[in-house]
Nucleic acid binder design. Structure first.
Lengths: 218, 218
DNA sequence: TGCGTTCGTTAGAAGTTGTAACGCATCGCG
DNA sequence: CGCGATGCGTTACAACTTCTAACGAACGCA
C-alpha cells in the first residue's frame, strides 16, 4: 500500500495525480458508464482546469485504455488468488461472479460492447491469456467428464490459443464453455435483463456451474 | 414494401424522412458504434442542417431508443419466422446466430453494455417477452431431457416471467440456458474475443447447441 | 384564394475534446 | 547556495457536439 518510494519526487507526484485521476474516473464510470466519462468533469472535481489533465493522459482514449488495463489486471489477480490454494473451479466461478457484481461497469469494460475500430494493446491481450491459463489450470484438475465429443477433435487441431499449456482437448472444451456460459449469464444479469423475471440469478448461476463440473452423465 | 398510402401527404413525407434518418443512423452504427452516432453527421449526409432533424426526433436519445425498438422488432420477427414451420430449436438458434452476425452492433444494441440510468419503455419489454415466448414454444416441443434438477423446483415457484405460457419448469430451465449460453458465445464472438484463438466459432456454437438439445445422458 | 400548420433555416448557448502559448514553481546540478 | 532546465497549471482558442429560439418560406386543406 504505502509504496511512496517510487523515485524522484516529480515521478512520485505524477504517479499520485495519475492514480487520483483514475479514481475519479472509476467513480464516474460506475455511476454513468464509460460513454459519459468526461475529462473536464474529472478536472472540475479535482479543482483544476480542463487541459491540465493532458499532462497525465494523452487523451480520453488513453485514459480509458488504462482503465481497461487495470480492470483486466484486477480480474486476473482475483482469479489467480481464488486458484492459489489449489485448482478449484467453483472457487474460480464465485470469484468471477463476485468481481462482476462488485462493479458491473468494470465488467463491461472488459467483456462489454466493443468499439469497432479499437484494438487492444499487446500487454492487455497478454493478461487475457493469463486469465485463460488460470482457467485451464482449474479445468485440468477436474475429474474427466463424459465421452469425447466432436468439437474436442476440432480443438485438438485448432487449439493454438492454449499453446504451452499441457491440457487435453476435453479440458480446452471445458474451459471454453466455462467462460462463455458464465459470461452469458453474468452479462445478462448485470445488464438487468433478468429483473422482473422472478427467479434468483445466484441459483441459476449455481445450476450452470453444477452442469459444468459434473454434467448429468448417468 | 410499397406502403406509400399512409394518410395525408405530410404524414407520408414525415414517415419517409424519419426512415431515411434511421437508415443513415444504422449505417453509422454499424461502422462506428452507438457512442459515435452523431445527429449532425446524419444531417450533413442528408444535405440539410443540424437542427432540422429535431423536427423528427426529440433528440439523440429518442433516435437511439427508436433504433433499439427496431432491433428488438427485427429479432422477434426473425425468430418468429424461424419457428413458423413448427417449433424447431436448432432453426431458432441458427436464425439467432445469423441475425447477430449480420450486424454485430445491432446485436449489441439489444444485448450489449447498458447505460446505467436508462430504462426501456414498456413496448420494448413487451417485444422482449414475445421473444421469450417464441423460445419457450420451441423448448416445449423438445423431447424431455434428463432428470429434474434443483433449479427446476425454484423456477416452478419463481417463474412469474413465463406467465400465461403452459410450460413446465424443465422447459423454462431449458429456455433460460438456451438464452444465456448462446448469448455468451455470440457476445464474445462478436466482440472479437475469439480472434486469434484458432478454433471455429461456428463449430463451438454447434457443439453448445447439441448440448442444449440432447444433453449427454447415457 | 387564403390561412394555418409544418418545415428548414440561421443564430446562439452550453457542453465536450484537444492544441498552443505563456508564467511560475520546483527539482537537480554545479 | 544559486542558477538553469524541466515540468506543471493556467488562459485562450479552434472544432466539434447536442439542443433551443426565432424567423421565413413552402405546403396542404378548406
Amino acid at each position: 500500500m504505502g509504496d511512496t518510494g517510487g523515485g524522484t519526487p516529480r515521478e512520485r507526484y505524477r504517479a499520485q495525480v495519475r492514480s487520483e485521476i483514475k479514481a475519479h474516473a472509476w467513480e464516474q464510470l460506475a455511476t454513468a458508464g464509460a460513454s459519459a466519462l468526461s475529462l473536464n468533469a474529472i478536472a472540475r472535481q479535482m479543482g483544476l482546469s480542463g487541459p491540465a489533465l493532458y499532462r497525465y493522459f494523452a487523451g480520453r482514449d488513453e485514459l480509458i485504455t488504462e482503465l481497461v488495463r487495470d480492470a483486466y489486471r484486477s480480474l486476473a489477480d482475483t482469479l489467480r488468488a481464488a486458484g492459489a490454494a489449489g485448482p478449484d473451479l467453483p472457487a474460480l466461478a464465485h470469484a468471477l461472479r463476485g468481481w462482476a457484481l462488485q462493479d458491473p461497469q468494470r465488467y463491461f469494460l472488459v467483456y462489454g460492447t466493443p468499439v469497432p475500430g479499437y484494438h487492444a494493446p499487446d500487454d492487455i491481450t497478454a493478461i487475457a491469456r493469463e486469465i485463460m491459463a488460470t482457467l485451464l489450470d482449474a479445468c485440468a484438475a477436474l475429474p474427466p467428464g463424459g465421452p469425447a465429443r466432436p468439437f474436442d477433435t476440432h480443438l485438438a487441431e485448432h487449439g493454438k490459443w492454449a499453446d504451452g499449456h499441457p491440457a487435453g482437448p476435453a479440458t480446452l472444451h471445458r474451459a471454453l464453455t466455462f467462460w462463455t456460459r458464465l459470461h452469458g449469464l453474468l452479462s445478462l444479469e448485470l445488464a438487468g435483463h433478468f429483473t422482473g423475471m422472478g427467479f434468483d440469478p445466484a441459483l441459476f448461476f449455481a445450476a450452470e456451474l453444477d452442469d459444468l463440473i459434473g454434467p448429468p452423465q448417468d
